[in-house]
Write a protein that binds this DNA or RNA. Structure first.
Lengths: 141, 141
DNA sequence: ATATACTTGACTAAATTAGTCAGGTTTATA
DNA sequence: TATAAACCTGACTAATTTAGTCAAGTATAT
C-alpha cells in the first residue's frame, strides 16, 4: 500500500480551494504560496482533478479553479483516485510458484490484505471534503 | 503510508511457520520453498523477528525457528513493527514554509492522516497470527 | 568431521517519487 | 490589440526506496 505526497497535496489543495472559493476562482499560484506546494507540481495534480471532473478551470487573467460539485459530494476516495493514489495493499506475485490467482489458490494472507484494503477504502469513502473543512475552521489557514 | 513486500512476507512466513510448527522447528529453507520467498531475504526478515522476540532460533541440523509466544498473542502490529513497516501515513515537511509541527500550527489535513493512521493500526492490533491461521485452515497452504 | 541451518553485513538493479523545466494556449483588461 | 496572468502538457531527472543477491562466516546434531 502506498499513500504519497501527491495524494496529500491533492487533498490539501482542495481544502484550500474550497475555503477560499467565494466569488472568484482560486489560482494555483495562490494555493502554491499558501500551502508551500510547487506550482508546477500543482498543475500536474489539477490536470488530473480536472479530468475526473472534481474541479473546473477558468482560463485567462483572474482565472483559476473552482469545485465542480459541492464539497459535501466530493469524497476522499474520488480525490485519491483522480491522482492515481492506489489504495491497494499489495499485489500477489503473478508468477509465484505457489501462484495466487486470488480465486482458487489464494496465498496465505490474501484475505488479510483484501480486508485491510476495504477497511481503508471505507474510511476514505465516508470522508468528504466538507468534513475536512469543518475540521479546520477554528485553525489558522 | 507504505506497506511493502517485506511486511507481507513476514506475515506469510509466520503463518506458514505457525502451521507447520508441530514438534520440530521449521527451517527457513522449507518456508522459502513453500512460499516462494528468497531464502536470503527470509534470513533478513527473521533476524528482525528474532530481535523483537517473536521467534526463537534453533541452530544446527534439524534447526529452524519456532514462535516465541502463542499465535494468539502475536498481533500483526508486532510483526510489522519488527520488520520496520511503518504504518505512518505521511510526514509533514519539516521545513515547510507553512510549518506543520503537529501541535500549534497543523497543516490543513494533519488530523486526517492521523486519524487514518489510527484506523489502520487498530486493524492490525486486533488481528493476531492465530486469526489468520484459522482463516486459512480450509484452504491449500 | 561434516552438512545443515542460522547470522551478519555489504552491495546492487530496478522502480518510484517528487519534483523541475520548457514551451506552449487562452482570455480579461487596459 | 498587446500583454500579462494563469491554465496546459509532456519530457526529463535526482534522490530514495525496495527487493532482493552475495559472500563470509558461526553453531550444533548426527
Amino acid at each position: 500500500m502506498r499513500l504519497t505526497s501527491k495524494g496529500r497535496y491533492a487533498v490539501m489543495a482542495l481544502v484550500d480551494l474550497a475555503r477560499f472559493n467565494n466569488i472568484n476562482p482560486v489560482s494555483l499560484r495562490d494555493i502554491s504560496l499558501r500551502q508551500g506546494i510547487s506550482l508546477d507540481y500543482l498543475e500536474q495534480i489539477f490536470s488530473k482533478l480536472r479530468k475526473k471532473e472534481i474541479v473546473q478551470s477558468v482560463r485567462g487573467i483572474q482565472g483559476g479553479y473552482v469545485l465542480s460539485k459541492k464539497a459535501k459530494e466530493i469524497k476522499l476516495t474520488n480525490i485519491l483516485d483522480a491522482v492515481d493514489e492506489k489504495v491497494k495493499t499489495l499485489q500477489c506475485k503473478k508468477e509465484s510458484k505457489k501462484g495466487c490467482n486470488g480465486r482458487t489458490t489464494k496465498c496465505l494472507t490474501h484475505n488479510l490484505w483484501d480486508e485491510l484494503e476495504n477497511h481503508i477504502n471505507n474510511f476514505f469513502e465516508k470522508k468528504s471534503l466538507d468534513d475536512l473543512i469543518k475540521d479546520n475552521t477554528e485553525k489558522r489557514f
